[in-house]
Design a protein around this nucleic acid. Structure first.
Lengths: 329, 329
DNA sequence: TTGAAAGCGATACCAC
DNA sequence: GTGGTATCGCTTTCAA
């Protein structure tokens, strides 16, 4: 911390602290001459504003909290890093809270963020099936939801990749590349964004007049044994859309283990574009989320919300992009 | 933010604010009866302490800053997540600063952390060859260095994996598994921890009476062409210790591309244990850093440093662990 | 254009 | 045990 206070600067510059404050904050009401004099002293002393005092007075902290389910997940890490970077450019600092998909921790973090008086909160992703309603505790503080459907859309700005369209594109890609009967593989945990991906998948089937039956076109991933038995009882299946890359990778690894060739016997496409995709052999065709665009939109939105807290209620869907690689024909 | 201040609580409980403060902070000097009365009011109002005011008064923020070069790197992400988790358990919040290996950003973050009056700073990793001396600006605020050699060891606590020993173990493993002449592959960027790994590699060679010559036993990784020509001119090389997993993976991918078999033609071992290791075929034998232990040590150390800032100067090396997989025999 | 002073919400010293 | 009050460093209103 800097040893100088505004009082010291005032004294050294022979002005009042009020004047120093105005100059620091560009509030006008001072002559160019005093401004220069004061800035000189500030430069020479290395004076830095004390943010505790400033926050106490103004109730703004220039700090944003980010709730993220798991920072190790490469999609989240990428997103958080980009958001943090953009916030920093706007002179905001970021408190990153890893909730570990744990409701207790999430609540504890929210309390902490509240009494640190963060200016806004960014909530990433649906840790919970039907977004648990932490929002009640957030009535006064602006927040943005990424991928997590809020309890009340009117209270927030909802930003998300267009999962549904992305999934539809992925599925159509399989079909366009020769698949007559794609299946979708999910994890047992279904978030709202995964739900949208499933919807997109079904839409693509429907538009191509391929019937969808839960047992036959949808597999909840467990292990290679369950995959094998699924394959045996559903011989018509010839490709997989996995709801995320981790599942896609497990699927490919299992298919290889079972003696199948990808993409010859089965095509596979994933979602998220994680680093491992390119390490896998065959490399994984996938749907990439535009994290830069999401981050940009999120930061713009939250900053706007800070200025005019009434501008809530909008929903923004960001386009995805298909990256063709070797796991599809 | 909570709408109640300590003044409100005092009024509602019919005591002075001094008493409320003492009770909140468990400072003693109050009767059990008043304590209960006050706590009841606090519970009913949902009163939360205002941390700006508290920090202004006490100069402690219960906040720690973490400088990390790249949060997307899975080793860093893992480490940061674990540190953050442990700090949170101790009621500290964490400001994570992604420096992007950029000296300007690092300096800017340091200024920010300083005037946010964080209680301590954790600096992860050597972004710079001979750790640039930001420490000068940190004279007053305790900090811990992970993997980055500080300008002055007396000013900090230095914590790191035992890179040297880990690298030595890796190299010995290659030798024990039939390699007569291992080479080390590095990136062009040499951090202090990578330097230690190189030292460990050379130590293992030396102990096994294998001569080390820079051109022959050390390759700076570029691409498959450079690998091929290295192989051609150094026929005696039969295994690789890569200074990190990303390089190990690139090497294996390139070896396969060049028609070689791993581990039959060349054994490969990496360092870090990143997620992609297990996606690769063959899966990658590697040295894992004990991130849990590092995180624990870091948090313990910084908290101790906050209490007694004089306890600096120590260096702690955390053991690594070899994980055998398919890329070695 | 400038300055005096009130006040943000907490802590801690001192008096009782 | 309890309470009054100065104080932390800043912003902002009001008067000059």
């Amino acid at each position: 911390m800097s040893q100088y206070s505004i009082k010291d600067i005032a004294k050294l510059a022979n002005v009042s602290i009020a004047t120093v404050s105005r100059i620091i904050n560009n509030k006008g009401k001072y002559s160019e001459k005093t401004r220069r004099k004061v800035l000189k002293v500030i430069r020479e002393t290395g004076y830095e504003i004390d943010s505790s005092a400033q926050s106490l007075r103004t109730n703004v902290t220039h700090t944003i909290g980010i709730l993220v389910p798991d920072i190790k997940n490469s999609f989240f890490a990428d997103l958080v890093q980009k958001i943090e970077e953009k916030l920093f450019e706007k002179e905001y600092s970021t408190i990153i809270c890893n909730t570990d998909k744990n409701e207790q921790k999430e609540k504890a973090y929210l309390r902490m963020l509240e009494n640190k008086k963060v200016d806004g909160i960014i909530v990433i992703s649906g840790s919970y099936r039907h977004g648990f309603h932490f929002e009640s505790s957030l009535k006064n503080i602006p927040y943005i939801c990424i991928d997590r459907e809020p309890a009340d859309f009117e209270d927030t700005i909802f930003i998300s990749s267009n999962h549904q369209l992305g999934a539809k594109e992925a599925t159509k890609y399989l079909i366009d590349h020769g698949s007559k009967n794609p299946a979708i593989i999910t994890s047992s945990f279904i978030s709202t964004s995964i739900e949208s991906r499933i919807t997109g998948f079904r839409e693509a089937l429907s538009e191509n007049n391929i019937p969808y039956r839960s047992g036959q076109n949808l597999l909840t991933y467990e292990d290679s044994t369950s995959l094998q038995s699924f394959l045996n009882t559903n011989k018509q299946i010839d490709s997989f859309f996995a709801v995320d890359d981790n599942i896609a990778i497990k699927t490919i690894l299992d298919l290889k283990k079972l003696g199948y060739k990808v993409p010859d016997d089965y095509q596979v496409i994933g979602f998220d574009n994680i680093p491992s995709d390119q390490v896998l052999s065959p490399t994984l065709t996938t749907i990439a989320q535009n994290t830069s665009k999401i981050a940009e939109t999120v930061v713009d939105s939250i900053l706007k919300l800070l200025v005019s807290p009434k501008d809530k209620g909008s929903q923004i869907f960001i386009a995805t992009r298909l990256i063709p690689r070797e796991s599809t024909r």
